[in-house]
Amino acid sequence: MKKVIAREKLPELWKSLSAQGPLFLPVQEGPVVLFQQWQEGAKINLEATNTAVPPKDLFLPREETYMQYRCKGKELEVIPAEEVKPAVLFGVHPCDLSAVELLDKVYIEQDPADELYKIRRENTTVVALSCTEPDPFCFCNDFAINPADAPGADVVAHLKNGSLLLEAGTDKGKTLLKQAEDLLEDGSGQSFEPGEVKTADFGLKLEGLPENLKNRFDDSAWDELYKSCLGCGVCTYVCPTCYCFDVEDFGHEAGGERFRCWDSCMYGHFTEMAGGHNPRPGRKERIRQRFMHKLQYYPETFGQIACVGCGRCLRSCPVNLDIVQAIQTFGGETVEQC
């Protein structure tokens, strides 16, 4: 199913879609662009290549309350949270879409499935938006992602000649386009041929990297690589393929709620045990965990490197310690940029 809508008419589309359920899309929030729920007057920014924070929030929310509890005397009552409503996520770029597929492997395909994630995923219609211009930090070409195309999305959208072209790729996508039928015109005369977008190419040698890393846990290169790390969690929070979480209670003896929220392997308390023993006590162990997980552990289990080249860690790390540096350190070759 192919449809087209003029850009001027997009505000009507947003309004119509959000009347049927929450609609999330890239919104300009002061100096940054973030996926936010549409509301009247929101400044939609479809030009921005990458949002500051990835859309994983829609499926693995930074905070999700999944039960309430009530205690009365010796009794404990557990009340599960209500199921989430169907939503539309609009404007996901191909790198972020690939990242969601990486998360699916952990949260849906690997037994036991995580129902909280799975329901959100099933209830969300994802509209991918192809890139027209790469961000200076993008390097998804290194991961064989074509930023101009997004196979696998429910709907793939392209910004072309003042219009938005929409092509449904799944039944969910078709349903969505049908819902907005009144606003959309037939797009069968339009060219949906994905163009080609070139991102920066670090010339990373990824083939064989996971195998190569297997024996480099004790490599002295880690002693150097971690040094500039400040020990903050920016890289993990802006990473579309990071998925660690914490489970916490909020409340008092009589009642409260339990939620899960994002957590980061970069924090000291992440692995600290009740007795005080910490298997990953320092920045070196934690940096190694993060990069080994992306480049060796995850690939060993799921057959692919857990990075999509979105460039967020290159942009956001306050000290420019990013995954490209890690890959280069451990065998990926580099093309000098400056």
């Binding site: 952990v106 949260y107 690997q110 036991p112 995580d114 998925y243 660690c244 979480f245 914490d246 489970v247 899960r260 957590d263 392997c265 992440f270 692995t271 600290e272 045990m273 009740a274 298997p279 965990q289 997980h293 552990y297």
Partner: peptide, 15 residues
């Protein structure tokens, strides 16, 4: 023995 939060191989602590 490791610190654990989920028990189902997702939260990342005992990786």
């Amino acid at each position: 023995e490791m610190r654990m939060k989920c028990g189902v191989g997702k939260c990342g602590r005992c990786n």
